[in-house]
């Protein structure tokens, strides 16, 4: 049976604004399947975003949706979650939004380990503004502001999240579409800050400048570079050169922020 995405999408909002071949739609479908699999109630689920192509995603979703300012999604979401810990809070945004202008909010959400699911759609470019390089644009790549090749080193978002204290970190790709919902569902079920990085592509502003003939070429690249963590364990360093690990990269149990604050309340009431 075809999957019933429509029951999660606001009537009349499709087709979405994303360009032909943009992986954001693939990730959005994965997110919908995950929300469905976890049985999240629409009225009790907030989907929060910043600014950029990926951040337009909540507008399509028939949930409590909050499209905030550039980079600020995690901080708005923290306010929502603190004020109503019973709500499920999902943050969605792009690599520039999350790790450049929003980098501080991102790492501190990870550090607090607040029970939210942060989905980063990493297309390694600022798409909405026309293809300027982001912290995730590969060194040497062409962007509208790096026509001579990008001099900047890149962030590994998943490593950044692990280092900052997120207790669940996973990575998938738009090519491996069937895996996306499973990773996000595991993240939603996890108690604590779950980061799910989805590698996808911007054929319009990145692909064209970087000698990808089409999004199909870009999807083939995702297929080639992705190595599941289990498979990677059996591979040599040379074999892993240029590859990207996918699957659940990190998971641990540690104190969750709202629960910690509930203890503060308990102590204050006794004081």
């Amino acid at each position: 049976m075809a999957y019933d995405y429509a029951k999660h999408i606001r009537p009349g909002k499709l087709p979405h604004i994303w360009c032909p071949g943009c992986g954001h739609g693939i990730a959005m479908k994965g997110m919908i399947r995950a929300i469905d699999a976890c049985g999240l109630e629409k009225n009790n689920t907030a989907i929060v975003s910043g600014i950029g192509c990926a951040s337009r995603l909540p507008g399509y979703m028939d949930y409590c949706t909050l499209h905030t300012a550039h980079g600020r999604a995690a901080a708005f979401a923290t306010g929502v979650k603190m004020a109503r810990p019973e709500m499920n809070v999902i943050v969605v945004g792009g690599d520039g939004d999350g790790t450049a202008i929003g980098g501080n909010h991102f790492i501190h959400a990870c550090r607090r380990n607040i029970d939210m699911t942060y989905i980063i759609l990493n297309n390694s470019i600022y798409g909405m503004t026309g293809g300027q390089f982001s912290p995730c644009t590969p060194t040497g790549a062409k962007a509208s502001t790096t026509v001579y090749g990008n001099p900047d080193p890149t962030f590994d978002i998943s490593k950044l999240a692990i280092g900052a204290g997120a207790s669940f970190v996973a990575r998938g790709t738009a090519f491996h579409a069937a895996q996306i919902d499973k990773l996000i569902a595991e993240g939603i079920k996890h108690k604590g800050l779950a980061v799910i990085e989805i590698l996808d592509d911007c054929p319009t502003t990145y692909g064209r400048r970087n000698k990808f003939r089409s999004v199909v070429d870009m999807m083939k690249r995702l297929k080639e570079i992705a190595v599941p963590v289990a498979a990677a364990a059996k591979m040599t360093a040379e074999q892993l050169e240029g590859k990207v690990l996918t699957g659940i990269l990190h998971q641990e149990n540690k104190p969750e922020y709202c629960e910690q604050y509930a203890q503060v309340i308990a102590r204050a009431k006794c004081a």
């Binding site: 909050l66 901080a75 306010g79 501190h108 604050y261």
Partner: peptide, 23 residues
């Protein structure tokens, strides 16, 4: 916290304002 309210010290001023709007 004595009245069940929430206090959060955010990572910066912008985050503080964001948390207030979210709440």
């Amino acid at each position: 916290p004595k009245i069940g309210g929430k206090f959060i010290q955010m990572e910066d001023e912008i985050g503080a304002m964001a948390s207030v709007i979210g709440a």
